[in-house]
Design a protein around this nucleic acid. Structure first.
Lengths: 162, 162
DNA sequence: AGTCAGTCATTGACATAGCAATTGCTGAGT
DNA sequence: ACTCAGCAATTGCTATGTCAATGACTGACT
């Protein structure tokens, strides 16, 4: 309880109150809360995590296309070890299957099981409902377009830099 | 490798290719990547996580104000157990101190140590530089304002509902 | 053909956070 | 004054993901 702040602390207080810092915090927080809400709902109603649904989305997007673990890892922004363990859980739950690639014996391809397909159908419906409710409904069409455009530009800046 | 998709899979493929789903994914992904970039940089240059910086920001925002663990938990969207352990680590690192509240013996107040204050100053500078670079620079002033307005509306929808 | 730098997947050790149960304490209703 | 519903913080157990090291394999360069 320092009732007479030191000089350094005033600088700190200014930085802490900066508009940019709070706006950035809002972005992170909104995304996190949306994520948590959707994850919780999916677990409750469909028994899978949001990450798992993302995997199923990739696998079902273009049926018949080969998808490797590496491909999934890049797409989900996970490390390859994280992907390994995620798929371990999904395989154990009977949602996906691992198939050694015939073309390259290092790579493992992933495909959905029939059960995975069923779960995906239900989960995709739940997901769509939630996205509609918390992501689309609160925004005007204009806001919506500009929001995604702005996010796209942030993504580009990140990618260009790395 | 199913080269002749079943009927259900076509429905799934449509859902997976939905515009909304992908736009939503972009929001989550942008936020996550920004978060990871900032977290990594802070760890490297200042030895603290982004979450820890968020704690320090709360503690330094209005010096002299009492901040309880519960208050921090709500603010950071953490559970109280998560907050306990986060503060364990921060206390061990000498960044903060726990003080039993004189007014209510259930609550524990948290304040920064001098060392915590120093780290905060450096970390806040790094943070500001990164926020500027990846969050502000890629956007026009207009985009920036609309982005935060849109996010605010999403936050409101989430809060009203819960 | 033989080497070897680079890639994919896996594993072990660890970090972070959630949930449920527990303890200590408070304040409101009787 | 007494009880009791409820809150703050902590702890054990679990879930999820990272990093570093490893093994298996590939493809390009001598």
């Amino acid at each position: 309880m320092n009732t007479t702040p030191q000089p350094g602390e005033e600088v700190a207080a200014r930085a802490a109150n900066s508009r940019l810092v709070r706006d950035f915090g809002l972005l992170i927080k909104s995304a996190t809360r949306l994520e948590q809400r959707i994850d919780g709902e999916l677990r409750q109603e469909c028994g899978i995590s949001h990450t798992m649904l993302e995997v199923l989305i990739r696998l079902c997007r273009r049926p018949g296309e080969e998808v490797s673990q590496r491909h999934l890892a890049d797409d989900l922004t996970l490390t390859s070890s994280g992907t390994t363990r995620l798929l371990d859980r999904m395989e154990e739950a009977g949602l996906v299957r691992r198939i050694p690639s015939p073309a390259d014996r290092r790579v493992t391809l992933v495909e959905t099981t029939p059960h995975g397909g069923e779960v995906f159908l239900r989960a995709a419906a739940v997901h769509a409902r939630l996205v509609e409710r918390y992501f689309v409904a609160p925004l005007t069409t204009d806001d919506y377009g500009r929001l995604t455009a702005a996010l796209g530009r942030i993504e580009t800046a990140l990618r260009d830099d790395a």
